[in-house]
Design a protein around this nucleic acid. Structure first.
Length: 555
RNA sequence: GGUCCCAUGGUCAAGCGGCUAAGACGUAACCCUCUCAAGGUUAAAUCACGGGUUCGAUUCCCGUUGGGACUACCA
């Protein structure tokens, strides 16, 4: 017995604090009943993934709904895969989408809260205390197997078609004598600490999942590594220790963790701790050649949330889309309540679908169009200006040059019951409104696609009439009446009906006249409301464009 | 391969033993209309398959098939 003490002292000479000290240092939280403590615990290995945003949105929503706490923790125990600075980036992107934590790791090396540190690499002492305890109760042991040996074991298991892993007869270091352990450590051999599992793989355990209900899984019998040779814990162990001492009550994470649940359960039991509730969320999938697959950061640009930021989707639109995936009744709720304030919606884990939702960019666009159309012109201008300052400098300089003008453009058909919905993202705007700006207009008007059945001479005449007769003080209805008069004067019917009745009498109808004007003004067959376009451009600019067209293309 | 999870239109899905099987996105048509975008109306399109249980299965059970996840000193 004293031998084991020696071994422990050799491995943890510096650990004096006990688990009881930790229990006191991180007491149970005093929260109203029903409050849940949830967390988002990413590893700093890249940019924020859409799936992670989804998971954290749900964690935060749950905590907010019951006056709980949503905190963040950085799981940076894999130094090989770590990308420096990505932890900060993750938190900043989270903030962009309004999923900021109440507590925990923030960014720039900052954190807030009494249950820290919230960065795992800074918690090495805590893990060592717990592991020391596990060794004392005989539930952990040093393992000296090398990567090569482990590889060999795996191959052997494969050839016998046995379950891979460190267990049973394959757990070579499990029954080493303490003498040998001490000797090999003193000899300087590298080692990891493994958990000593007492489970039987052939019996099943029942675990409750908040979304899926009871799940039956084979009990864990793997002696998993809990402390790596670099002194940092593995995910499984860190999860158990951190979520215990941070007093997490509900762990929401991707469904890829279901299969390691027995490990976590056994770890909690060995430590005599109460396990948190678990909610394993479906992953977001994508259709690829007819097959569903997980969104992949490498293959799918939209897998990283930076895609939405770069393309100029309003963050709230992305959040709304994710909410609609999380609870399918959310969409109906937005329609009934005419609101995209997702915080007012009551989210329920029970209403979650169990299989991964396919990522549907059309649906995102639908939400986004609705949201953008409800911004005021002033708001939209501000958002677009901010976005374009980084992602579209051409547009940015146009806005900067005359913000008022841009705002007027953004206001076209906006202040009405059913506002115009043609922008799903800010990057849609520039191509649609460039014609308002002279340089671009002159560049493209050359390819003016006038109706070939109408002669240049007629087109020219129509434009001349508009130059002389257009009255900018009229309201929209009267203006259109005046356009009808101009049509009639130039040989066009005042309506399509009239034209159809008397085809040989007319050259066309008022629609054709409007088209001539539209093409001359916007260099396109499509444009928003012509009256408003002309009001924004003003007489001077309109006349200038029409004269330009007459002089250059119609003679 | 093994273990686990999942299965209603192209997509998101409601449905909890009896329904003409909601709704939304998308698609198509029509209406409105100076074009486009909206808006309105309508349409096409779904219970993977095979066994049970039951008077009756989309619904419960078991298989099959299909899809997904996991199977590291990665998380």
């Amino acid at each position: 017995m004293s031998q084991i003490k020696d071994l422990i002292n050799i491995i943890f000479p510096d650990v004096k604090i006990t688990i009881q000290n930790l229990e006191k240092k991180y007491p149970e939280r005093r929260l109203p009943s029903g409050a849940e403590v949830t967390r988002f615990a990413p590893s700093p290995t890249g940019f924020l993934h859409t799936g992670s945003l989804f998971t954290s949105l749900i964690a935060k929503t749950i905590a907010r709904q019951n006056n709980g706490i949503f905190y963040t923790r950085l799981e940076d125990t894999d130094s090989k895969r770590e990308i420096s600075g990505s932890g900060d980036e993750l938190m900043k992107q989270l903030a962009v989408f309004g999923v900021s934590p109440d507590e925990g790791f923030l960014a720039d090396n900052k954190e807030t809260g009494l249950y820290g540190p919230y960065v795992q690499s800074k918690r090495a002492d805590i893990y060592r205390i717990v592991i020391k305890h596990l060794m004392e109760i005989g539930r952990a042991y040093p393992c000296f197997c090398t990567t090569e040996e482990l590889e060999l074991i795996r191959k052997e298991q494969e050839s016998y078609k046995q379950m891979p892993g460190y267990y049973g007869q394959y757990a070579k270091c499990r029954n080493l004598s303490v003498d040998e352990q001490i000797e090999r450590i003193q000899r300087g051999e590298k080692f990891v600490i493994r958990f000593r599992s007492m489970g039987n793989h052939f019996s099943k355990i029942k675990v409750h999942d908040e979304i899926r209900g009871d799940i039956e899984i084979a009990d864990n019998d793997l002696d998993i590594v809990i402390l790596k040779s670099d002194g940092l814990p593995t995910y499984h162990f860190a999860h158990v220790v951190d979520d215990h001492f941070m007093r997490t009550t509900l762990v929401s994470r991707g469904e890829e963790w279901i299969s390691s649940l027995p490990i976590h359960i056994e770890l909690f039991e060995a430590l005599n701790w109460k396990a948190p509730k678990y909610a394993h969320l479906p992953v977001i999938m994508k259709l690829d050649n007819g097959n569903k697959r997980k969104l992949s950061k490498r293959k799918d640009p939209e897998a990283a949330v930076s895609y939405f930021i770069e393309n100029g989707y309003p963050p709230i639109a992305v959040i709304n889309y994710l909410m609609s995936i999380a609870n399918s009744n959310y969409e109906e709720w937005t329609i009934q309540n005419r609101s995209y304030e997702y915080q007012k919606f009551h989210f329920d884990l029970q209403n979650m679908s169990l299989d991964g939702a396919l990522y549907d960019i059309d649906k995102l666009g639908y939400f986004s169009k609705g949201i953008i159309s409800h911004f005021s012109a002033k708001e939209l201008t501000y958002f677009v200006k901010t976005w374009s300052s980084v992602y579209n400098r051409m547009l940015y300089s146009l806005i900067e040059h005359d913000e008022r003008y841009f705002e007027k453009i953004m206001n076209i058909e906006r202040e009405k019951e059913n506002p115009r919905k043609d922008y799903a993202k800010y990057s849609d705007i520039y191509p649609l409104i460039r014609f308002f700006y002279v340089d671009y207009y002159e560049m493209i008007v050359e390819n003016h696609p006038y109706n070939e059945h109408i002669s240049k001479k007629i087109v020219s005449q129509v434009l001349e009439s508009i130059i002389t007769e257009n009255d900018y003080s009229l309201d929209e209805e009267s203006w259109f009446e005046s356009l009808k008069k101009i049509s009639l004067k130039n040989g066009f019917a005042v309506s399509n009906k009239d034209y159809k009745l008397n085809k040989d009498k007319f050259l066309g109808h008022v629609g054709d006249v409007a088209e001539i004007l539209r093409i001359s003004l916007c260099a396109s067959k499509n444009s928003p409301n012509l009256y408003q376009v002309m009001q924004i451009m003003g007489k001077f600019e309109v006349d200038k464009r029409l004269e330009y067209v007459i002089d250059n293309f119609l003679k």
